[in-house]
Simulated scan of single mutants.
Amino acid sequence: MYLLGSRYCDTQRLTDLAWSTFGSISGGWRRVQAICDYVHGHIKFGYQFARSDRTASEGHQERIGVCRDFAHLAVTLCRCVNIPARYCTGYLGDIGVPPDPAPMDFSAWFEAYIGGRWYTFDARHNHPRIGRIVIARGRDAADVAISTAFGQAELVHFKVITNEVRDCDAIPTRPAMELERRLFA
């Protein structure tokens, strides 16, 4: 399922571009990173560029978008070169990077299946980040919409805060929780 085209990942329009640009790159990881580098340099990010119906090929052509457009294009290019890829949505805080004064928002990234497991990639930021909170995974944004509204809908309030926990002892591990449950049962 993660090799097929979908609503926003219109593989049939980008297959030739994908093979001509990335087909000679060997190795799954290097190929996916080359795709991320390409998408990161090709699309200009801006919230004012948000459009709910933009496909990957339109994002490629228009060269503007938001994080979902970066993810859709990268997912599509991966699928075009036979690398399974799935769209991810969730939260991405400012842990390990300079604080962003803008309010926290939903974020989109993707995962590619390489060497028998899924790896996280983010074509918008294009460097490793910590503190991702995955809400859902799917073929594209149509599968994992955070909310769906028909007609006029106004967001009145939205606030998400993430904080890094520095003391690992403060977070019980699964074995510690199991032991505690047996001791106090």
Rank of each mutant, 00 (worst) to 15 (best):
I95A: 08
F49Y: 10
A142S: 15
M177N: 04
R63N: 04
G23P: 09
T162F: 06
G93C: 04
Y91A: 05
I43C: 06
S57Y: 01
A176K: 10
A71R: 05
I161Q: 15
V160I: 15
R139F: 05
G5M: 02
H72E: 03
L14A: 06
Q61M: 07
A108R: 02
A18D: 09
G131K: 06
F110C: 14
A50C: 12
A141I: 00
S57L: 06
V81L: 09
H127L: 06
I64C: 12
C9E: 11
T162I: 04
C80G: 03
Y8L: 10
I161K: 15
V134D: 02
A136D: 11
F70Q: 05
L14D: 09
I95S: 12
R117F: 00
L183M: 15
L3W: 11
A153M: 07
R7P: 02
F106W: 15
P175L: 14
R51M: 03
A153V: 03
Y113N: 07
F106R: 10
P99L: 08
A34S: 15
R181C: 14
T148P: 07
W29A: 13
G131T: 02
S52C: 01
G96F: 08
S20V: 10
L179C: 14
R166D: 10
C36Y: 05
F110T: 10
F49L: 00
C67T: 04
A149K: 08
E58T: 06
R166C: 08
W29M: 13
F110E: 14
D100F: 10
L73D: 01
K44A: 14
T15V: 14
D37K: 09
V160P: 05
A176Y: 03
V144S: 12
A56R: 03
R182W: 04
I146L: 10
M1I: 10
